[in-house]
Design a protein around this nucleic acid. Structure first.
Lengths: 134, 134
DNA sequence: CTCTTGACTGATAGTTACTATCAAGTTGTA
DNA sequence: TACAACTTGATAGTAACTATCAGTCAAGAG
């Protein structure tokens, strides 16, 4: 059994966010001790893991709740859950691609600045060095 | 010269968001025609491009504004701007890594579900098929 | 046996970055 | 002249945190 603090460290999710997710019904099997303190077991860690995964890829909390509810219904929903996973994979791949494109932009900027630094910018007080660049 | 609608299509950013960014001071050189309509030129497109790039990697709008203000100051800020670009690159790389990790989680789920579908789930009414899985 | 410390609780409010709605002005075409 | 298609700013709404706060509880120090 883990406390919220331990889960926070283990899974690298803030305690605040864990409570927020819990309140949103994203951890269906969580229990409390006699003092009302949340106790996470291994299954709960699995829930944290899948929620974190879906959130990272931009799935909204409502859709995540939907996926979790499907899990709770049982095996009759497996095809639907499979589709959700595959759609999410697709989204993740698109994001990789987009990130790669933006890295290209940054690499171009990097070269641009390195060139400026190398060549002519020893003296920022030189009035020639006042052009605006993006 | 481009209208906001054209820029929206060209850069794949909603008109709403473009106006929001404009209002936040993220497009420093934008002009208006006699009817107060925004006119984007090639330089403005460059601004849109860099803003979009930084946002994609999670830079907040305030920090983007800071970068833009540094650009406007001129060449004396080039080293600072270079550092921002390099830090952003680092962040992008981390996000790629994180995305790859989450893809692993999804691939595992995919296999898990494919296995279930292949083996024993022809009949969802079978009471044996009611276990909860994440 | 009280006191303090630290972890936890829920409630509430604040923040960021959109996103949607709306009334109003302008322009091009019929 | 009417109307459709743009555009504008203002305003409000939303998602998902994130921060603050007052309060509970248990364990250890003195």
């Amino acid at each position: 059994m883990y406390t919220i603090k331990e889960v926070s460290k283990l899974m690298d999710v803030s305690e605040h966010t864990l409570r927020f997710w819990a309140k949103s019904g994203l951890f269906p099997s969580i229990t409390r001790d006699k003092n009302n303190i949340r106790q996470f077991d291994e299954t709960d860690l699995e829930w944290v893991k899948i929620v974190k995964c879906l959130r990272k890829i931009g799935t909204d909390n409502k859709s995540i709740k939907r996926y979790i509810d499907l899990c709770l219904i049982g095996d009759s929903t497996i095809k639907e859950r499979y589709k959700i996973i595959m759609d999410t994979k697709e989204k993740a791949l698109q994001q990789m691609e987009e990130l790669r494109n933006q890295l290209d932009v940054l690499n171009y900027k990097q070269k641009f600045y390195e060139n400026l630094i190398k060549n002519n910018l020893e003296d920022p007080w030189n009035p020639a060095n006042k052009k605006v660049t993006t």
